[in-house]
Nucleic acid binder design. Structure first.
Lengths: 338, 338
DNA sequence: CTGAAAGCGCTTACAG
DNA sequence: CTGAAAGCGCTTACAG
């Protein structure tokens, strides 16, 4: 069906070498008239170069593999759009896979990426248990890890400054006079981003000379419901918090729903700081004070870090890039009760 | 760096033809002992087959191109996870691109897909203006269009039954005694899914013998804010609606926010039916009555339709598959005031 | 500025 | 059950 470079060469009355040079933009190496003849042939035949053939020859596929822990999470689709944008700009295509939070699937996909001979990998790991992850120490392409670090692996990291993000939330609440500040998060497990947020909470508390009360922390199971129950538990404590920090965007609404279920009002009875600043956070009731963690920028930064390494011919990416979150103050936080 | 099939053959003391047969699962054609020797060599060398080479030879890439109008929309990331899942099951990889709602970008991406020699394309078009779209009439691979039809193009369609979805919402409100039912949608333009929802609204009204009042319809510009203004306009009409249907998930929260801004309560003062049943709709205040349009299933169905055509060796996909939405009744709708 | 030729890593008849 | 050989569609020294 498709025309090949040979068809074009024949139609233009030149060799395939010349066609190839013209197509690859080495215009200084092809005379203008020859170029015009080739272009005419390309147009007439509807010639579309075969990247598989090029890849086989050059050893570069112009493919970037993106492996997400779970693509169904709205935050990550936005990150992906940033990755997309940066890769597109650099003329790379993006192969996307989602591990549905399962390490065995991650394995399969990484293998697939290798078979497709992607030039590089962007990876938001679902798990970080050292034994599961050890097998990836010898991946043959540069890898940049997104938001989560993998201990002991030769990957670069591009992530938000998670500790600082939660720090901003704590400081804001402390400035409003709150001293009993609840923290609702997903269970940290071995995931660096979650651990960092927890650490950010503890450090900021310490920095404000507030004693840490374990009763004020709740870890929910991943998903769209457990956060509600966890928050309710927190609210029925004998000495409940006057403010709550939600450490993940998917938990924001669950915390709010739990508070309403308990018959409390935000911010009259309790203040809430959310995370991520999803586009709809300002549409919530009340408009949510949140820690903004620009998703699109994260994607762009990660892709650019990888692409830079690729351009430089580096076989591996090192170091880490941290993006700074920002606090967006809206109406869900106010002065603590006396 | 990477071992090739020739390295494996040498290490196992057989020809590359035999290695190829073994690797492709034609185990009946390879003796058990030879197979074992090959497997040992593969493991020891860490051999990873080169799909570009295979693709070049077989003419099949095992790549599916997915082109989304805008991947940053949460609904579509869920659709994508369904596509993902189905393709993974069938051993295809997925190349994802997002057009950011721009037709020129769509063009570029389609071209990229062709260059990558994808085996098929899943396409949620950003625009459907006939002149923009005409160029795609001769795409060399099977295409299935997602949610939106492209007039006159030889593509299959997998979509929700949009008209029926809105019909369900109208019927529910009519049953509750509402007769002034507002409709807030994005501007339909030439997009079939939006036109169908509008038609569903009009037809259902007619079916209930309710005269149609143009003052009850508002079209917002795409995005996260214009829907608020449109809804406010609707609410300050001299004879305002007693219920509102939001025709897109991204509009649900905007409609709710506008109602609150006007000092009205849901459902005491006005009923609201949303669209899509995003996972957080039940966490809203009040929990939202919505038309559920299972995103993941849509993705799975579309991918399967395409994969079936591919298996059958069909060069083009025809016909359409319609998925039925379902009404999920929660607490944002109630009896109309007398 | 242009062409002939080798070779990227596979699969697949064809022959044995 | 196994191997030798052709060929998929490109790129890239090398020569001229």
């Amino acid at each position: 069906m498709g025309a090949t470079i040979e068809d074009v060469a024949k139609a233009a009355g030149v060799s395939i070498a010349t066609v190839s040079r013209y197509l690859n933009g080495r215009t200084e190496a092809v005379s203008a008239t020859t170029g015009a003849r080739i272009q005419t042939a390309v147009d007439r035949l509807g010639y579309v170069p075969n990247l598989a053939a090029r890849s086989l020859k050059t050893g570069r596929s112009r493919l970037i593999g993106v492996l997400l822990a779970n693509i169904a999470h709205p935050y990550w689709s936005t990150v992906l759009s940033g990755v997309e944008e940066a890769c597109q700009r650099a003329n790379y295509s993006v192969i996307v896979s989602s591990a549905s939070d399962r390490a065995d699937i991650e394995h399969r996909y990484l293998q697939m990426f290798l078979e497709q001979r992607v030039d590089g990998i962007l990876f938001n790991p679902a798990h970080a248990e050292p034994d599961l992850v050890a097998a990836w120490s010898a991946l043959s392409v540069p890898v940049v890890t997104l938001d989560r670090t993998l201990p002991g692996l030769p990957f670069g990291l591009v992530a938000m400054d998670n500790a600082r993000g939660i720090g901003l939330a704590v400081e804001h609440l402390v400035a409003l006079g709150h001293r009993r500040i609840g923290f609702v998060s997903w269970h940290p497990r071995s995931l660096s981003n979650r651990q960092e947020r927890l650490k950010g909470y503890l450090d900021a508390l310490a920095g404000a000379d507030i004693g840490f009360d374990p009763a004020l922390i709740r870890f929910a199971e991943d998903g769209w419901s457990d956060g509600v129950d966890c928050t309710v538990e927190l609210l029925v404590e004998p000495d409940p918090p006057t403010a709550i920090i939600s450490a993940t965007s998917m938990l924001n609404l669950q915390v709010l729903a739990a508070i309403k279920r308990c018959g409390l009002r935000v911010p009259e009875d309790i203040s809430v700081v959310g995370y991520d600043d999803s586009p709809w956070d300002e549409l919530l009731d009340p408009p949510l004070t949140t820690v903004a963690t620009p998703a699109r920028q994260l994607g762009v930064a990660a892709a650019e870090r990888l692409l830079t390494a690729l351009d430089a011919g580096e076989g591996t990416v090192t170091g880490e890039v941290r993006l700074l979150p920002q606090l967006v103050i809206r109406e869900s936080t106010r002065q603590a009760p006396p």
